[in-house]
Design a protein around this nucleic acid. Structure first.
Length: 886
DNA sequence: ATCCTCACG
DNA sequence: ACGTACGTGAGGATG
């Protein structure tokens, strides 16, 4: 007879474990309907592991039927005092059961009994019928069921870290046999199940006593042998409790379970149901895994076939005119669309899809005309990427009506994936795979050689754009985000595209000259440090450096990181007073940072043909609405110290005699705060044109009108102003300006007394986030804050600070974006070109004779971008290089 | 891949 | 009491 293997799972216990194992990732595990899925996901992970290792022929998952059981009848307070199950968890139970149905596993619950008793009873039945049984649970109590043919598997920390309890392992680990577990629990009680046991007996004594006497009953038969006086007293006094607790701890082997173990045959997955379930839960990894394990290795499960026409030079004329618009997607491998090879495209509408690998067809009629026509509406995913790439083919994309990527980002900033398949799944659409699924990743990433595979994927992308557009557009409207979308973000994409294409000229020779100077300096400092340390080591390794400083040289470790000693700037600065090596390390760090990131980093990305660097602005990345810049990042070129600032000498205009011109908003975030909070005192300071940090200093230090604001006092006030914008905490402020927490708290309290409108604003934002789940900027940009009601102090505090900061930072981002869009039009008759944006600053190149014009024009466009309750202020600078534009 | 450090607003 | 400033990207070391 073939071996019969039974898998029994404690559904409640494992779901609980899974929920808490993935608790920190709770925010990431939600499906498109807002259902939390972390416990379902974790449960399935555990299930996969167990199915793989046990290979069961029979299986069942038992659940608790309700709160009241025969145990609560025996003892009122059984499992009393437990915190209510979090709603994020309880909502997941029905879906765990649905998952199990799709996986071909029966579930069962029995009124008045716990899952444990069902398992105990079935395990007994299985034993009598010659099964080998594996029990899965998160609860150690079930180890009492371990025997020669029954293993109890307990998940430890995560969901895949599983410990297998055989009788021998129980004995080794717990010091008693499985049958004696209940005696142990009888004596020591159980805090989580809330029953007492014997006073003064903990795990250690319980194991000792049971080891010696075998059982509670035998122990009481020999109670006179106990010599420890206090212990004996307690045992006698708590005799009844001990017996009751033992009874409560005993798992039934004869509950009235209606299932017969022979009927628990494991049927295996219902493929169709499971695919549908995974899709609904957004379990893309499990979906991909099915694809790998499944019989049809190239097709993602659940994808239906799609028709397409392959375009060739000789059938281009068969293309429709697309009077009702079309979907268009240009495919390339890799992120950097300035350079990436274009692999193919799809164009079409209403399930007529035209595809090709030959992008040069786009330069032919009628395709070029279609793409360049403002009258043919194009629906795309990532307009900026498409525009820049088409520009390389001398095609100027026009008539873009909808960019699905931007729409999705505005609806929820967490949906910032640049993958169409992923975004589609976020919105519950599953008829398109992710690029990773089709193209692979890492070294194996490639466009499929098979035409059907590749073209189907392209066609599905186009169809997804068409299918998702109406819903997303409607959602934007519901959120009052249509204007943000149509008038800010969509036009912004093209402004950014043109800035990226323009690029900024960087003189390699300048960087190379700096580089050789730095190389010499580094060698020199390196030698000094080796001498001071008494040996050579890798200064760039925090680990080796920590060893040298704090172990070999015995300096006091001021701060620790997760993995060792901190060697961050703050720490080294404190050490510098007593150890000159610290000073040298700081100098070494500073120079090697400039060398590797800026000199070498920039040299690597200068385009050999035009001597420019072409960054990419990520428009759908940040949680606040700011842009970010990559490849290279041109938003963090050094400026705060002179050595680094010199890098800016390499950034020059594209023509000799031209100038770099830069305008920046002065204190834009504090002005936005003054506007949004309507705080009269802060608004007055800005209207009077006061130095806001000095004004704040006068207020929080209660200074008289004739008292002078010293630089140090102003510096402290400035830090408080910054702190306010960040969503202040006394600790953060105290760290930043080196005062005690108490002093910091005083500053903050006084600040809020002096600027009561600001205090009210902060409270209002947190309140709003709690009530509606998100905060908004002046242009209705949203950020959802699911952690705002978290029971975890840290998560909640972070969400609160974010609620205060995001409307400020995000509104400032809104303002400069509006200015940038208007700027293009404002400078269209000039040769001046907008090149860079650095959050509150715009950088241009222009002929010298246009500078005078720009000095008036640029600030006027910037300060009139929005109408606030207080004026915006803009300052301008220019010079022959970026370095000189100060 | 992840941590640490450090560049910017 | 909890452990903290907000938002980013890049390079180097390390597992």
């Amino acid at each position: 007879m073939a071996e019969k293997r039974l898998l029994l799972i404690d559904g409640n216990s494992v779901t609980f474990k899974a929920f808490f194992a993935l608790y920190t990732a709770l925010g990431k595990f939600t499906n498109s309907e807002g259902l939390h899925t972390n416990a379902i996901y974790g449960f399935n992970t555990m299930l996969e592991t167990m199915l793989d290792t046990v290979k069961p022929t029979h299986a069942l998952v038992a659940f608790d039927a309700g709160k009241k059981t025969f145990r609560t009848k025996m003892y009122d307070d059984y499992k009393g005092g437990r915190a209510k199950t979090a709603p994020e968890l309880s909502e997941q139970f029905p879906y765990v059961k649905e998952l199990l149905a799709a996986r071909g596993i029966q579930t069962y619950e029995l009124p008045d009994y716990e899952a444990d008793d069902i398992i105990g009873t079935l395990a007994k039945q299985a034993e009598d019928n010659g099964f080998t049984t594996t029990i899965v649970t998160g609860d150690r109590d079930l180890t009492q069921l371990a025997d020669a043919h029954t293993t109890v598997s307990i998940s430890r920390k995560g969901v895949s870290d599983i410990e297998h309890y055989t009788p021998a392992y129980v004995k080794e680990k717990m010091g008693v046999t499985p049958e004696q577990i209940i005696d142990i629990k009888g004596l020591q009680g159980d805090n989580s199940d809330n029953y007492p046991g014997v006073t003064g007996v903990g795990p250690k004594r319980a194991v000792d006593l049971i080891g010696k006497y075998g059982s509670i009953e035998n122990l009481y038969d020999h109670i006179d042998e106990i010599t420890a006086k206090k212990l004996k007293e307690h045992l006698v006094a708590d005799h009844e409790e001990a017996l009751l607790s033992k009874k409560l701890a005993t798992i039934l082997r004869d509950a009235p379970v209606e299932k017969q173990v022979e009927n628990l045959v494991y049927e295996g997955d219902d493929q169709e149901k499971l695919v549908e379930f995974y899709q609904r839960m957004n379990f893309n990894q499990f979906l991909s895994k099915m694809q790998i394990d499944g019989e049809t290795p190239t097709a993602t499960p659940g994808l239906k076939d799609i028709d397409f026409t392959v375009l060739k030079a000789d059938n281009l004329s068969s293309l429709p005119t697309f009077a009702n618009g079309c979907e268009f997607y240009l495919e390339m491998l890799g992120d950097n669309y300035h350079l990436a090879e274009m692999a193919g495209f799809v164009i079409g509408h209403e399930d007529h899809w035209y595809v090709s690998r030959d992008v040069s067809l786009l330069q032919e009629a009628p395709l070029k005309g279609l793409l360049e026509s403002a009258d043919v509406a194009k629906q795309v995913f990532d307009a900026k990427r498409t525009y820049v790439a088409l520009n390389r083919l001398n095609i100027t994309l026009a008539g873009v009506d909808c960019d699905l990527l931007i729409a999705s980002y505005l609806l929820n900033t967490y949906d910032n994936s640049n993958d169409l398949g992923r975004v589609a799944m976020e919105h519950g659409y599953h008829q398109v795979a992710t690029d990773e699924d089709v193209y692979g990743k890492g070294a194996k990433e490639a466009i499929p050689a098979d035409d059907v595979d590749f073209f189907s994927h392209l066609a599905r992308k186009a169809r997804a754009i068409e299918a998702l557009r109406p819903e997303l557009i409607k959602d934007l409207d519901t959120n009052e985000q249509t204007q943000l979308y149509r008038e800010i973000e969509l036009p912004m994409a093209f402004v950014l595209a043109r800035m990226e294409i323009a690029g900024i000229t960087v003189e390699a020779s300048e960087l190379e000259a700096m580089g050789s100077k730095f190389t010499e300096q580094l060698a020199e400092i390196e030698q000094t440090i080796y001498n001071e340390a008494g040996e050579e080591f890798n200064i760039g390794s925090p680990k080796q450096l920590g060893h040298i400083l704090f172990e070999k040289m015995g300096l006091p470790p001021i701060k620790k990181t997760k993995t060792g000693y901190s060697t961050a700037v703050g720490v080294l600065e404190k050490l510098a007073a007593e150890a000159p090596i610290a000073e040298n390390i700081l100098k070494y760090r500073k120079i090697s940072k400039i060398q590797s990131t800026y000199v070498e980093g920039l040299l690597k990305v200068i385009h050999p043909d035009d001597h420019k660097v072409h960054t990419r602005y990520l428009q759908t990345m940040t949680q606040t609405g700011r842009l970010s810049s990559v490849d290279p990042n041109l938003q963090n070129i050094p400026v705060r110290n002179e050595e680094g600032r010199a890098i800016r000498k390499a950034f020059v205009p594209r023509h000799p005699g031209w100038q770099i011109f830069s305008s920046d908003y002065s204190q834009i975030e504090l002005r936005v705060l003054a506007h949004m909070s309507h705080d009269a005192n802060m608004q007055e300071a800005f209207r009077e044109g006061e130095d806001i940090h000095a004004a704040t200093a006068r207020r929080i230090f209660k200074m008289g009108p004739d008292e002078e604001v010293t630089p140090n006092i102003r510096r402290q006030a400035k830090a408080v102003n910054f702190g306010i914008v960040y969503g202040i905490s006394d600790f953060g402020l105290s760290q930043n300006i080196g005062i005690t927490r108490k002093q910091a708290k005083n500053f903050i309290d006084t600040y809020f007394e002096e600027y009561p409108g600001v205090k009210a604003y902060m409270d209002r934002m947190v309140q709003q986030a709690k009530e509606q789940g998100f905060v908004e900027t002046i242009a209705h940009r949203r950020r959802y804050l699911p952690d705002i009601n978290s029971r975890n102090f840290n998560q909640r505090s972070f969400a609160e600070r974010t609620a205060m900061n995001t409307p400020i930072q995000g509104s400032a981002a809104d303002i400069i974006k509006i200015a940038m869009i208007r700027m293009e039009d404002a400078v269209k008759d000039l040769q001046a070109t907008m090149l860079l944006q650095v959050h509150d600053e715009l950088i241009f190149e222009a002929p010298a004779d246009e500078i005078e014009t720009l000095e008036k024009l640029v600030p006027s466009v910037m300060d009139s971008a929005v109408d606030l309750e207080i004026p915006l202020k803009v300052e301008s600078h220019f010079g022959p290089t970026w370095y000189n534009a100060k």
